[in-house]
Design a binder for these strands. Structure first.
Lengths: 269, 269
DNA sequence: CAGTGGTCTAGACCACTGG
DNA sequence: CAGTGGTCTAGACCACTGC
C-alpha cells in the first residue's frame, strides 16, 4: 500500500467529460464534470472507506497529485471544497487532516444553544445524564426520517443535559440498529466527550452535516418534570436529522431547550 | 472614468507584507496579508462606495487584473471569496454581478421560516400589513444593538405577515434614523417586494449578513391579538441584527413566529 | 463570433511546522 | 533543514452567453 502504481482513475491526460458518454449520445444531460470534482469524489471515497481515519493526516497534495496523475493545483481545488464542507482540515506546514468531532476547537459543532451571558468556553461542558437507552422497532415516522422500513430495529436514547446544575436540554434520539450494534446506556455514560466523537471511534460513523427544524412548544407532563419547568413554560423544540456521507441519515434527534438562560444562535449570510 | 491610469494600489510587482511595516518593527503582529486579500479589500471599497450598484456587472476579471496590475488568478481568488460571502454573484459567460435582495431566486434570504407542507415557492409571498411606523429616540438597549447613543433618533416599524390569510409573523424593527431619512409607512406599504430590496434601491443600504438569537416565549396581550393566538400559545422569538459592510449594524428586528403550521429551518455543516 | 467566467497546467517562491 | 500548505504568475484551452 506504500505506492499506488498508476491507478489512472481519471481521464489519461486531458480534462474530459464524465458520465455515460459511451452510450452514444443517448444521455439527456451532457453532465460535464470538471477534473477536480472527479478527484474530490475519489478522495471522498477514500475518506468513506476509512483509508484515512478521523484525526489522521491524508497524503500531501503532491502525493495525491502523483497518485491521480493531475497537477497539484487540481488536487488543491478538490481539497479546498472538502475543507469548505468541514470534511478535512488544512493546517499550514503540517498537512491536511480528516475532520473529527473529538477536536478541542470544534466540539459540539452542531449545538447552537449558548448561554445568554458569557461565552461557551466559560460555561464548561454540560453534565450529562442518560435516562434510558432502549432497543425497539421503528415507527413509520422514525423509519421515514432515517430512510428505514417500519419495524426495523432502532435504538432510542433519552438524556438530560444540565448547566451549573440546571437541567437545560432534554434530548430524545433514534439511531438505526445495525450500525450501532453494541451501544448501551453504560457505554454512553462512561464516555467523556461529544456523542458524535464516540460514534466516530466506536462505530465508524461520522456525522457530516445536519438539518434542524425549530418550533416553540409546551412540554408534556413527563418533560416538564425532567426539565424542572412548569407545564406552561414555552420551550424550543429542535428536531435534527444528521447525515453521514452520501446524504445517508444516521440520527434523528429531538431536543427540548430551555431558553430562559440560553438562546439558539444562528448566523445568516 | 473609462480608464484607470495605473493607480498602482498595491505592491508594485511582488507580493509583499501589508500593515505598518514602515514603523520600524515596532508592530507586534507581523500581519502578513496576501495580495488577493488586498485586492478583495479594494473591490470591497468599490462596492461600498457605490461605484457598481446592486444588480450591475462589475468589470471583468481581466479588466480588474489590469487595473490592479496583478494576474487574473489573483483577482479570481479575491472574487471567489466575495462570491462565497454572497456579496457578488458569478454567472458564466455573462460576468460578475453585485448581489441584490431584489433577485428572484434569493428573495427572503434571511427568512428561515418555512411551511410544514409544501415548499416556499408554492406558498407564494406573504400578505404584509404595516401596523405603524414611528420616529422615536433610541433606548439604551436599542442603541447598543445598533451601535448608537441612547437618545439618537431611530425609526420603529411594526408589521404583520400573513400566509393564506393567517397572520403568522409579527415583526417589530428598528432602524438608525440618519440613513433612513424619509422612510414612511406609506412608502413601505406601497412597495412590493422584500424590505431589504427597498433599502437597497431607496436608501443605498445593503444588508450583507445577520445574526439571530432564538427563544421560545409567550405573547403579551397585544401580540396575542395581532397574531390571533391565545396568550398561552408558545411562539418563536427571533431577534435579528443585520449588518452592512464593515460589520456595521443597520437593523434590529424582533420577530414573533407562529410555529403551528410553519417551522424555522436551519442547515448545519 | 467575441467576451465572459471556469478549468488545468507548470513552475516559482513564501510562510509555517517540526526534527 | 526538508516537507507541508499557501500564494502568485503566465498561458492554454473549455463552457456558456448573447450578438
Amino acid at each position: 500500500m506504500a505506492t499506488h502504481p498508476a491507478p489512472s482513475p481519471v481521464a489519461p491526460t486531458n480534462p474530459t467529460f464524465a458520465g455515460g458518454d459511451a452510450l452514444g449520445g443517448a444521455g439527456s444531460t451532457p453532465a460535464f464534470s470538471p477534473l477536480y470534482q472527479q478527484i474530490k469524489g475519489l478522495i471522498l471515497q477514500s475518506l468513506q472507506s476509512g483509508e484515512w481515519k478521523p484525526g489522521e493526516a491524508i497524503p500531501s497534495e503532491m502525493d495525491l497529485a502523483a497518485r491521480f496523475r493531475v497537477s497539484q493545483g487540481t488536487v488543491r481545488k478538490a481539497i479546498d471544497e472538502l475543507a469548505a464542507e468541514h470534511l478535512v482540515v488544512r493546517r499550514q506546514g503540517k498537512g491536511t487532516f480528516v475532520a473529527t468531532h473529538a477536536e478541542q476547537h470544534v466540539q459540539y459543532r452542531f449545538l447552537k444553544l449558548q448561554p445568554d451571558n458569557g461565552d461557551i468556553q466559560s460555561e464548561g461542558p454540560a453534565e450529562r445524564t442518560i435516562i434510558d437507552c432502549k432497543r425497539l422497532r421503528a415507527s413509520a415516522e422514525i423509519a421515514r426520517a432515517l430512510s428505514l422500513r417500519s419495524g426495523d430495529p432502532v435504538l432510542q436514547v433519552r438524556r438530560v443535559l444540565a448547566y451549573a446544575g440546571v437541567p437545560t436540554i432534554l434530548e430524545e434520539l433514534w439511531l438505526p440498529g445495525a450500525p450501532f450494534k453494541g451501544l448501551t446506556a453504560e457505554r454512553l455514560s462512561n464516555y467523556n466527550g461529544p456523542m458524535y466523537a464516540l460514534f466516530e471511534t466506536e462505530f465508524g460513523v461520522r456525522m457530516v452535516r445536519a438539518e434542524e427544524s425549530i418550533r416553540a412548544v409546551n412540554p408534556d407532563e413527563e418533560q416538564s418534570q425532567l426539565l424542572n419547568v412548569p407545564i406552561s413554560a414555552p420551550l424550543l423544540s429542535v428536531e435534527r436529522i444528521a447525515y453521514t456521507y452520501n446524504d445517508t441519515p444516521m440520527e434523528l434527534r429531538r431536543g427540548l431547550y430551555r431558553t430562559d438562560t440560553h438562546h439558539y444562535r444562528n448566523a445568516l449570510s
